[in-house]
Design a protein around this nucleic acid. Structure first.
Ligand SMILES: [Mn+2]
Ligand SMILES: [Mn+2]
Ligand SMILES: [Zn+2]
Ligand SMILES: [Zn+2]
Lengths: 148, 148
DNA sequence: AGTGAGATTTAGAACAATTCCAATTATTGT
DNA sequence: ACAATAATTGGAATTGTTCTAAATCTCACT
């Protein structure tokens, strides 16, 4: 029973329409790139991947589309320190584990129970719209390089 | 029983010495500024405050000194989204509540019990050196402006 | 007190990521 | 088709930070 999880171009179009926006080829390809390899790419990395399918796309458009997807709640923008923003199409509540050695980022699912516990540290009067949890450290077996 | 909490110039000097560094006037004043008003100022804000005491200081030095204090574990660098880095001399384990309206940042103490619960979501093999928790939302009664 | 090595500060240039801008191109409804 | 609106584009501009190379300071030693 996955509510709220868009994984197809059709769903993308629907979500965009909800916000009065159009499903353009650029938006579809960029969203597809994010779904295909969920390694939290930067805008530059998305740009590089998209260009193999759509060589004429501009970096400005990549930024525009990513921003649009974030606005539609189809994608989360993720930041570590002051590094470039990374993009994540995982809509379930999750934390991020940032491996400092490899630079890779892993999603860590967050049970609602834990999220509630965390929210419980807030004194009365503090109304949190969002909670962000980030781990930094070393993850074991980085699976060699990345060729499957 | 506060271990690890430096609040005086002398302790600063000690900590710096531990790392083979000197206690310069610039470092002392900057650390003093952070201790005096714990509102998580940016480098620019620190620069402005320091200049009232030391008009000749340079912005590069402010950046250098802040970085040094972070290296010595006397100060934490705090980031929200892609905003400018903010600096926090609170060494206790704590989360940050970022009030989007006012732009202000509040420390939220984190009981060890909660921190452990949060760490417990990590699958085996994930070794977290640090955990960062950030709330975003609206805090009630922003105490009018700020004149006491 | 004077000297030299090394640390620190400084001003300004350089940089990286992102946003802005004005012009062009695409899509939509009539 | 046509006009209105939305989206894309290349390049300039902006922001926060880091780099660089020169000047200054500090400390240890004579
Ligand atoms: Mn990293
Ligand atoms: Mn803010
Ligand atoms: Zn993620
Ligand atoms: Zn803090």
């Amino acid at each position: 029973m996955e509510s709220n999880v868009a994984t197809t171009p059709e769903v993308l179009a629907q979500r965009l329409a909800n916000s009065g926006l159009r499903a353009t080829p650029q938006r579809e390809i960029i969203y597809g790139v994010l779904l295909k390899k969920r390694d939290h790419p930067t805008a530059d990395e998305v740009y590089a991947r998209v260009r193999t399918d759509m060589p004429g796309i501009s970096l400005a458009t990549v930024y525009n589309c990513l921003e649009t997807l974030v606005q539609c709640d189809l994608v989360r923008a993720v930041n570590f320190e002051r590094g470039p923003t990374r993009y994540c199409p995982n809509l379930r509540p999750h934390a991020h584990f940032h491996d400092e050695q490899s630079g890779s980022t892993h999603d860590i699912d967050l049970p609602a129970e834990i999220l509630d516990k965390v929210r419980s540290v807030l004194p009365p009067g503090y109304n949190a719209k969002s909670v962000e949890i980030t781990f930094r450290g070393k993850a074991a077996d980085e699976q060699k390089s990345s060729q499957p």
